[in-house]
């Protein structure tokens, strides 16, 4: 009885090319599904832009305010809307998709193919991050062009803050996807995190107007630290080191927790 075997040729150029095209198609397919799913597009892109336009149309929001340190309410809200976009995509759009993929055995099915399940996670993250970047650029551009909100003056600090905040938020989103058993549970858990985090980001009451206890708590939440750091860098300063440490700590903690707890089935 002979044992037939498969020739062991690895690392051939053809295989590498075919796996690249597989990853491209996987990303394109996930992008289509992201559009069809609508949640991310409506709440992560459309809604913050709509808020910006509404706030921009309120004359009082464009008057400098002494309480806000000479900024207009609209100026103060641009960083909050940036936080809103990141939180909406990372906590409300991403986790139900991934937890649903696990619940429905899609990750398992992928793990029986040459592509494997890790790549679908990578494709999802790539899409959500790309949508976030485009939306942030749109918000900053619309705010500048239509409503004369000044552009960030400490560009490096601003971009670094966005990057750290994105890592912190998306790793928290992956953590939610890791611990939620079903897509529905992930949805609920994401919303449960979203609202308090957006409160401390100043969505309902800008951080500068909060009582000092709340302001202190806010500095230790990922979105509160992000919004304060975005405000500081917009006005041209380097962010307070504590804010950067807080963001970095959340990014590390979220990534470690997600990597430890994520299950494929």
């Amino acid at each position: 009885m002979s044992v037939t075997s498969v020739t062991r040729t690895t690392g051939s150029r053809a295989a590498a090319a075919s796996s690249r095209s597989a990853l491209a198609r996987l990303t394109a397919t996930e992008a289509k599904l992201f559009v069809r799913e609508r949640v991310g597009l409506v709440w992560g892109v459309g809604f913050p832009l709509l808020l910006l336009i509404i706030f921009g149309s309120i004359p009082a929001f464009k008057q400098p305010s002494k309480d806000l340190g000479g900024l207009t309410t609209l100026d103060a809200y641009v960083p909050i809307l940036i936080a809103f976009v990141l939180a909406m995509l990372a906590l409300n759009a991403l986790p139900p998709v991934l937890a649903g993929y696990r619940e429905k055995g899609i990750l398992r099915r992928l793990s029986t193919t040459p592509v494997g399940a890790v790549r679908v996670l990578a494709a999802q993250l790539a899409i959500q991050l790309a949508v976030a970047v485009v939306t942030l650029v749109l918000i900053i551009a619309v705010a500048r062009i239509a409503y004369h909100v000044p552009l960030p003056r400490q560009v490096l600090g601003f971009a670094g803050t966005v990057l750290l905040a994105a890592i912190a938020l998306f790793s928290l989103g992956l953590f939610v996807a890791a611990v939620a058993v079903t897509g529905r549970a992930a949805n609920a858990a994401g919303a449960l995190l979203f609202f308090p985090m957006m409160f401390f980001a100043g969505l309902w009451l800008p951080i500068a107007l909060m009582p000092s206890v709340l302001r202190h708590i806010s500095s230790f939440t990922p979105l509160g630290a992000a919004v304060q750091s975005l405000g500081e860098t917009t006005s041209g300063a380097w962010p307070h080191p504590l804010l950067i440490i807080v963001l970095a700590a959340w990014a590390v903690a979220g990534s470690v927790a997600a990597a430890r707890l994520f299950r494929w089935e």
Binding site: S18, S21, A22, R25, L26, T29, K32, L33, R36, E37, G100, Y101, K104, G105, I106, R108, R109, T112, T113, P114, V115
Partner: peptide
């Protein structure tokens, strides 16, 4: 495998096109 599904909004042709590209 038993009980493995696909995303509800994925079309049949898209699924097959996608999975063909893996091989």
């Amino acid at each position: 495998l038993q009980e493995s599904q696909l995303p509800d909004r994925l079309r049949v042709g898209e699924a097959l096109e996608l999975y063909s590209s893996f091989y």
